[in-house]
């Protein structure tokens, strides 16, 4: 189904944006208007990647994106049970690798990696995937387990 031009589709559902102010950020629309708290706010300045979501499959910093600018788009977040194959695969890999402690950065990492796998395919070299995650910060894990999760997400059978 094509999304209505004045709304969004979020995780496969229509979301109405009636009365939304023009300056509203996608991050705030998701968290406060739609109550989808999975997407996190870390810095609000583009530096940490915690707010990463997919817009039409492409990883996007929701804190630096006006919702109006992506109207009609298909948004994917960490919330809910996803049918999205890359997202499912990456979530499982993060769980299996134990790639989180407090978990605050995790939705951003998961969506960023799912986006990379969509763009570049599972055959992309692991170095390229790791390089593509440089915009995501984690203050807890020391990254080693996240690196293992990336390898797992590439290798796990479908």
């Amino acid at each position: 189904m094509t999304p209505s031009p004045t709304g969004l589709r979020v995780n496969g559902r229509d979301a109405a944006l009636d009365g939304m102010p023009d300056d509203e950020r996608l991050l705030d629309t998701l968290r406060w208007r739609l109550g989808l708290k999975g997407t996190k706010e870390g810095c609000r300045t583009g530096d940490c990647g915690a707010c990463t979501v997919l817009v039409d499959g492409a990883s996007t910093l929701s804190c630096l994106t006006l919702t109006r600018e992506v109207e009609g788009g298909e948004i994917t977040t960490i919330d809910g049970d996803s049918e999205d194959p890359e997202l499912r695969r990456v979530r499982a890999a993060f769980a299996d690798a134990g790639a989180l402690q407090c978990g605050y950065c995790t939705p951003g990492f998961v969506l960023a990696l799912a986006g990379l796998l969509k763009e570049r395919g599972r055959a992309a070299p692991v170095e390229e995937l790791l390089d593509g995650l440089q915009g995501n910060l984690c203050r807890c894990t020391g990254y080693a387990a996240i690196v293992r999760a990336v390898a797992l997400a590439r290798e796990a059978p479908t």
Binding site: G46, G49, T60, T65, G115, G135
Partner: peptide, 9 residues
């Protein structure tokens, strides 16, 4: 420039 997610926009 920035990160992949930044460069998408």
């Amino acid at each position: 420039v920035g990160s992949v997610a930044l460069r998408h926009r």
